[in-house]
Write a protein that binds this DNA or RNA. Structure first.
Lengths: 286, 286
DNA sequence: GTGCGGCCTCCCGATGCGGGAGGGTCAAGC
DNA sequence: GCTTGACCCTCCCGCATCGGGAGGCCGCAC
């Protein structure tokens, strides 16, 4: 039987950490003295402690570590571990994307922005919609688009999406993806929706969506400085996407920022201030 | 001038987060109404907000973000960013190592352990020593060994190190690296040290040091179950290391766990309990 | 018996974000 | 001019995981 200090030296886990793991039910000492509260560990617990150590190095949350240790079946255990490795991989991808985008941001290139204001008439489309949290948007989008693709036989235009303002302000909001078609079918989550007519300030984002928020910022800035009123959810139109070509540099995403009324692009001044609603659009990220 | 909510929509940073960044002095609003406290941002602040956003995605701590933004010189800025990317890379390496080690740990292979008890006489060596924190050990080791190599002309044996118990229990402790030589020179941090005679339970760790703590655990377990007394800092001897071959699988590191007195390896029982000091060794980690 | 190191519990801080309470402000519409 | 509802304010708390430190009991050697 080993006192906590000795066990600490054997496992390279600090005494405090071992106590925490005991409290959390993660690694119970082989024996606890009822009167003194002293924890005593057995040498057989060293491997378990080392597995915990490794999992913590991978930032596996303590409850998940517990789940992994509790699952007696090596198969289930392997699955849980694999899940975490996959999560790590996804995080790595995000890191890579952020690094690339940061480099682009810090390179001081003006990157002139083409913005066009365009009236879009009301259209009836096949759509899938839901309230979604920001982190889930990507996964939700993939599923919804796949379902649309499976159901819509004769699309009459490129797909698009509408993204609620709240999505970014609050981290969750209403999202709708659609595909134009002559006779929208009704099947599963797919149903007909009539998108209202709007005027949109439109620009095109080129390449991956990793730094589409930068384009959003530039477009928003254009809208603000040109004193155009704004309202309603932002619209994206996927002119060229992964479904069309695997080459990210060829991707084209149109971003449409609703504008309430149009004004000639004059320098802003006291006379140029317009009456406008209090809300303005946001967008999905990444 | 944009209210905080509009700015939030333009930058994809939540309102709360923007307020925090203001409090932290990271992103000051262009104007703050003195009577109402309302924050107003300018469209020119969008790029700064986006850079902050990217840096935070890379887990750059807020004070560091501030330092990066405050440095007006693009060169210094690039250096700070590069430092962080390097840190990310190092973390990635650690993750990779932990994954590999975890796989090895979960594969249930008994891996028989060769342990030998050996009397080591007192020796005078050229040494570098210091109190070091656990996280710094690797970097400190590299520097100390380089200095030793530069100064010791005619080594009479392979290099080694002594690692205080406290290093793992408290996260910092005394560390000494040495190279045996006939006449230890005195230069910079290098000086002569006489290592005391000890008896060591010795085993050899094969391969990279990523999971050397597992070997420590196995050796410690052997020491405990064979009822040997222990005391003093643990010793490592670098039989074959990166200086000898780039092939990690060929590396050999001897781990010596001090034993106070030897007993025949009998099953433990009431009669086999020995008198021994209260302290036992730890080791450097990673 | 005394001293000291080991062990105990309990509280607090750091980090960066979100939730929620409680209350003031702004502008549209009557 | 007043109501209404969205918007903004501050302040407090919780989250996860770790470390620091206080205050006190316990065990063992001398």
């Amino acid at each position: 039987m080993l006192a906590i200090g000795e066990f600490s030296r054997l496992t390279h886990l600090s005494v405090r950490t071992l106590r925490r793991y005991h409290d959390a039910g993660l690694l119970e000492p082989a024996a606890v003295d009822a009167t003194t509260g002293y924890r005593y560990y057995s040498a057989d617990q060293i491997p378990a402690a080392q597995v915990i150590h490794r999992l913590r190095q991978l930032d596996v949350p303590l409850p998940d570590v517990q789940r992994i240790l509790r699952s007696p079946d090596p198969g289930a255990r392997a699955t849980l571990v694999a899940d975490h490795l996959q999560r790590l991989e996804a995080e790595l991808d995000r890191t890579r994307a952020a690094v690339a985008s940061l480099r682009r941001l810090l390179r001081p290139e003006p990157a002139p922005l083409d913005v066009e204001v365009r009236a879009v008439p009301a259209t009836t489309v096949a759509a899938v919609e839901d309230d979604v949290a920001l982190e889930e948007v990507l996964g939700w989008y993939a599923g919804a688009m796949a379902e649309l693709d499976a159901v819509v036989r004769q699309p009459t235009g490129v797909p698009g999406g509408l993204y609620d303002n709240a999505l970014f302000e609050d981290g969750h909001g209403h999202v709708l993806v659609y595909r134009p078609t002559a006779a929208p079918p009704r099947s599963g989550r797919v149903h007909a929706v009539t998108l209202p007519a709007v005027e949109l300030a439109v620009t095109t984002h080129v390449g991956e969506h990793d730094d589409i928020d930068v384009t959003y910022g530039e477009l928003g800035r254009w809208v603000v400085t040109n004193a155009l009123a704004v309202a309603g959810p932002v619209r994206e139109t996927y002119l060229v996407g992964p479904r069309d070509t695997p080459e990210p540099d060829a991707w084209r995403t149109e971003i449409g920022w609703p504008v309430f009324r149009m004004a000639p692009p004059v320098p802003r001044g006291p006379g140029a201030v317009e009456r406008r609603p209090r809300t303005s659009p946001s967008s999905p990220g990444r």
